[in-house]
Design a protein around this nucleic acid. Structure first.
Lengths: 260, 260
DNA sequence: AAGTACGCTTCCGTTATCCGGAATATCCCG
DNA sequence: CGGGATATTCCGGATAACGGAAGCGTACTT
């Protein structure tokens, strides 16, 4: 009865759970390299992790032998090509995690639910659970669209620095898909401010006529994700939106918690 | 005698150079999970790696604590969300590796060199080194195009099973970009056969008029990549192509070796 | 060009760390 | 509800990892 556990939250250090330290250290190194997204010297890694140099060296050497870290001519270290093997299956894994949440949204709201992320300058749909009574899909997994005319795009941009948003819009332009598409950067900026304050974003037939979509960002996760539900304007009434928003927000928080 | 077959399964284990075994084993587990891209039971992992159950369990438990593996309600194991953190910086890493090779191509051939991969049903340009005397870019990094009208797309498809190619073309269609775009699946299949036999693919103004592009696949690597050089038809003469192909092939092999 | 300083790599004795057999808890299926 | 299989915990032992100290290679300084 005496075995009470501290709730192991995110803090990875106070491990007395019998984890393998070498593995923990190795991944600390990998994450450090990933975050700096630039090559690092060995001693920089030692400083970062607080471990003595020979120890770091042995760990890094092991990772180099395995191909997960590569050593540049400068003798500096960066992530290695073997990482691609694991990275390839990461999106697939994300689906597995997200699908139950999306299904829950569909169960409660009866409309199609999506998970999307910003990849480069485009929104890409990663996962979807279609609503039961929807004959046709508005979007499909893998489809890519520009952020300015979608709820998920606005939700994600609402959490980005204004400068980044402007730069992105300058690169992509704001092509008009329907008569409702917002084509004025200032008007879009106002909508983003509104979304930031209210916690969700709306697309009211801006990407496709007759389709209304609401989305919330998934905050606190590496990578920029958003959840959305969308349906025909006739069913996505103000009342429906009012019921959907809290659910989207709580689902987003649950997903964020599960992701990290 | 000689029945002692605790042989190194997949990885070159005989690195008695002082590698850390726990790390090696941990990544073996991760790769196994990634390749099966489906949840696995603990004993399945034990069989796969040839390690006793308690050992596997401790390693997996450590990975679960770190978030790199998650444990489904079924008590089965799959890749975890923390993987996203590393996966995000993988493309960036790929550039670092590929750029010297692309630069070498440009040095030797004087034309723009690209690295592209098949992501979903689209070709995405991952890295580019522009030629010196080219005023404008034909493509840019991050741009997405359909495979059927590009050399890189054909190069990649030439190594794919015919069924997969047909399914892909059925999903994407074969929209006509220029008067030279191949819009007949049978004709494309013939071109792919030709490419498979010769080791390279050609786009002769099929995506953009006046631009000729030749590409070779990067074989033996997880993920489907291709290298290409492209330039105005006036400079991409048959002689230029003849000089470029062997260089592209050797560069592709060098890149594949570095990646795999 | 020689000297010097810095950071990377190797060596090696010590012991803390991880290993894995045996026992136990949990789940799954009939 | 009970039997078989699978996952998890325990623990003594020895191996495998640890890290101080010393040796190179390279880059900067005079």
């Amino acid at each position: 009865m005496a075995n009470l556990d501290q709730t192991a939250t995110v803090a990875p250090l106070d491990k007395r759970s019998g984890g393998v330290q070498s593995i923990e250290r190795a991944f600390n190194i990998l994450e450090t390299l990933a975050l700096s997204d630039k090559a690092m010297g060995l001693s920089a890694l030692a400083v970062e992790s607080g471990l003595p140099l020979p120890t770091i060296h042995r760990l890094v050497r092991t990772l180099v032998d395995l191909g997960y870290v590569r050593q540049e001519p400068n003798r500096q270290y960066a992530l290695g090509p073997r990482m691609l093997l694991l990275a390839d299956s990461a999106p697939n894994m994300l689906n597995q995690v997200a699908l139950p949440h999306l299904a829950h949204l569909v169960d409660e709201l009866g409309e199609t639910a999506n998970l999307a992320s910003l990849d480069g300058d485009q929104i890409v749909y990663l996962a979807q659970v279609p609503s039961r009574h929807s004959m046709r899909m508005f979007t499909e997994v893998g489809r890519r669209v520009l952020p300015h005319c979608t709820a998920v795009g606005k939700a994600i941009m609402s959490l980005m620095p204004a400068g980044d948003v402007q730069a992105l819009l300058r690169r992509t332009g704001m092509p008009q898909h329907t008569e409702h598409t917002v084509t004025d950067p200032d008007q879009l900026a106002q909508q983003l401010t509104w979304s930031r304050q209210h916690g969700y974003a709306i697309d009211d037939g801006e990407q496709e006529l007759g389709v209304r979509c609401i989305a919330v960002p998934v905050a606190g996760v590496r990578g920029r994700f958003a959840l959305s539900v969308s349906g025909p304007s006739g069913r996505m009434t103000p009342q429906a939106v009012e019921r959907a928003v809290p659910l989207l927000i709580s689902t987003s928080q649950a997903l964020a918690a599960e992701l990290g």
